[in-house]
Write a protein that binds this DNA or RNA. Structure first.
Lengths: 188, 188
DNA sequence: GTCTATATCGAGATAGAC
DNA sequence: GTCTATCTCGATATAGAC
């Protein structure tokens, strides 16, 4: 048999991650998560003390999965510039979701910035991981202002995601990704 | 004597505009607006049929005030490039609010994108006004791809605002505004 | 571990007195 | 026009049976 409970915990986490993204954290109810998992509301409290606990666990899971993805690039792709280009390509793959719901990291952090400070701070973690990784890549490319380039790249990507979300414009998204990749190739 | 009621309507609108920005639309209650205005909850329904009606009126007011601001630039500043630089300077003036609560237009649209479609569509209106105006300025500057430049500029500004909001970083905000103004001056 | 029933609260909205 | 009292609903959270 084994740990069936951990399976339930993971299912709650997966459903919450998706719903927090598609509906927003505050607009996602336990009922929504229950409907998506067929796990009754009351059962959630066996795995998580509060709704905030679920959010913290979701962010932890995101940090882990993002870190794993980036480590994978480090292992599979020798050239740091190629790694950055590959990251941009992944965003292209998710462009439908981004047009509908924006950037998973950005929209969550923006939502939480308007509420509790502790949750907003927590949401920064994924951004910090991403920025640090990009800084490493620019550093490996021998660029002196790697920290500024990293935040500039994330900033550009966030801007693109916001506009894609506001206007639901696929053409703009496609064009911008080309521009971003051009920009990455120009840095030296 | 005159229309005291319209004064109340305006006070509700002003308080709602501020609270929707600082707390988010969904996280702002009638009680919050009541506390801010000293107008009892029940009275709101004399001026607005629903909470969505208040939001629609807030967005209408923003469109009017943004249009007025831009028309004022058109009247006061002859050079279109100077107008764009002046717009950027205004954002600099609001940088404390942006670090705390993000871009008033962007964060609202992002929040509404996760819910009702009609409200999200409504929230685009301010963006459309802004993009059109910027397009006009680039057009007056004799640039052929004015439409793309306009959305690129808004995109860059949105990215900056997101990062400033996520990281509460004043230094980044200041540096980015310089870069943006450099970019505006480079376009020809 | 799992599930049902329920407590408690605050939300948007309404009715009607003044 | 203004204000109070109240309705209804859905939210998070808890208690306790199985």
């Amino acid at each position: 048999m084994g740990k069936k409970g951990e399976g339930n915990r993971q299912r709650i986490l997966d459903a919450a991650e998706n719903l927090f993204y598609k509906r927003g954290y505050n607009q996602t109810s336990f009922q929504n998560i229950s409907d998506a998992t067929d796990i009754p509301r009351g059962n959630f409290y066996y795995y998580f003390k509060t709704k905030e606990d679920i959010l913290n666990a979701v962010i932890d899971a995101r940090v882990v999965s993002l870190s794993a993805m980036l480590s994978n690039y480090d292992a599979e792709v020798p050239d740091p510039r190629e790694r950055l280009l590959m990251f941009t390509n992944v965003l292209e793959r998710d462009s439908d979701d981004i047009m509908l719901s924006g950037c998973p990291l950005g929209t969550l952090s923006i939502e939480l910035a308007k509420g509790d400070t502790a949750l907003h701070d927590k949401s920064k973690q994924a951004f910090i991981v991403l920025c640090k990784w990009m800084e490493e890549q620019f550093d490996l490319m021998g660029l002196s202002n790697a920290d500024e380039l990293a935040i500039d790249l994330v900033s550009r990507l966030q801007g693109i995601n916001v506009m894609a979300n506001v206007f639901n414009d696929a053409g703009y998204l496609k064009r911008s990704h080309i521009e971003i990749k051009k920009w990455i190739n120009e840095q030296d």
